[in-house]
């Protein structure tokens, strides 16, 4: 089993603490079936075929990384998960505290993995670029993302919290209890069906994913996953022609009918 990144430096009073949902993403993305899928999609360059179509190193994005545990895991263990260390990784979060935490979590996980691997192979980790502060995928060029991972605010709530106001967009040593509560609410509160933010992300997928792009989205039972998958499958391709969108459940946790039964849906075309 691949080691889980260290997040002991993360201020959990205002950044989401890794939980069952985070660990389901780690388990799913490092499962034999998903690493096989990802490797065949992004590591076509085998020595036997000298000139395969080269789209270049894939860009892996996590939206809303919080502590950074998931994107740090994907970066540090890139060779195992994607079949190549030649991947670029990044993350976008609305919270400056999550961005700072993520940068540190990734750096720690990469140096740990490099230290471990030094004897046999010096580069098993991907290339971390930086966390970016922003709303979902709004700062990215169209068609730029090859792998997108999203652990959304999925809990059904009466409404959505407001985006962080200007004073909460900057790193500070001291925050008030109310500010911390606001930041934590942003990490879980999903509005109607817990889907208001996830729906915006799904709407943005055809624009931001590359032709070979794939997204992993975490859903809970109350998000009505079957409806969500149906909606994704009926999306236009954006190109008019070609294959449509696929959406399949590739990981689950909490087998009993609890209200927070979780699943990971893989979206691709």
């Amino acid at each position: 089993m691949l080691p889980t990144p260290d997040t002991s430096h993360v201020p959990y009073n205002r950044v989401y603490e890794p939980a069952e949902d985070s660990f389901l993403l780690l388990d799913t993305l490092s499962s034999p079936s998903e690493t096989a899928f990802l490797s065949s999609r992004f590591c076509s360059t085998s020595p036997s075929s000298p000139s395969p179509p080269n789209f270049g190193a894939p860009l892996v994005l996590e939206v809303g990384p919080g502590s950074g545990v998931v994107i740090a895991f994907l970066t540090a263990h890139a060779s195992t998960i994607f079949g190549t260390p030649h991947v670029l990784t990044t993350a976008i979060d609305v919270s400056p505290f999550a961005c700072a935490a993520t940068n540190l979590t990734v750096r720690k996980a990469v140096s740990e993995a490099e230290a471990e691997a030094e004897a046999e192979n010096p580069s098993t980790s991907g290339q971390w670029t930086s966390a970016i502060q922003g709303d979902l995928v709004s700062p990215l060029r169209p068609g730029s993302v090859d792998v997108l991972v999203f652990n959304p605010p999925y809990v059904p709530t009466p409404g959505l919290p407001a985006p962080p106001p200007a004073p909460l967009q900057e790193l500070r040593d001291k925050t008030t209890f109310e500010e911390d509560s606001h930041l934590l609410e942003l990490t879980y509160a999903g509005g109607k069906d817990g889907m208001e933010t996830t729906d915006r992300l799904i709407d943005a997928l055809p624009g931001v994913l590359s032709e070979r792009g794939v997204a992993y989205i975490l859903l809970c039972a109350q998000n009505k996953p079957e409806d969500v998958k149906g909606r994704i499958r009926s999306m236009g391709t954006g190109t008019g022609e070609g294959e449509g969108w696929k959406a399949e459940t590739v990981g689950t946790s909490g087998k009993q009918a609890g209200w927070e039964k979780l699943q990971i849906v893989r979206v691709w075309r």
């Binding site: 609305v94 700072a100 502060q133 922003g134 709004s138 967009q169």
Partner: peptide, 14 residues
């Protein structure tokens, strides 16, 4: 700032 670019828009630009 601190190596992090802030792309959050003021409400009149959203």
């Amino acid at each position: 700032k601190n190596g992090v670019a802030n792309f959050l828009l003021p409400s009149h630009l959203v």
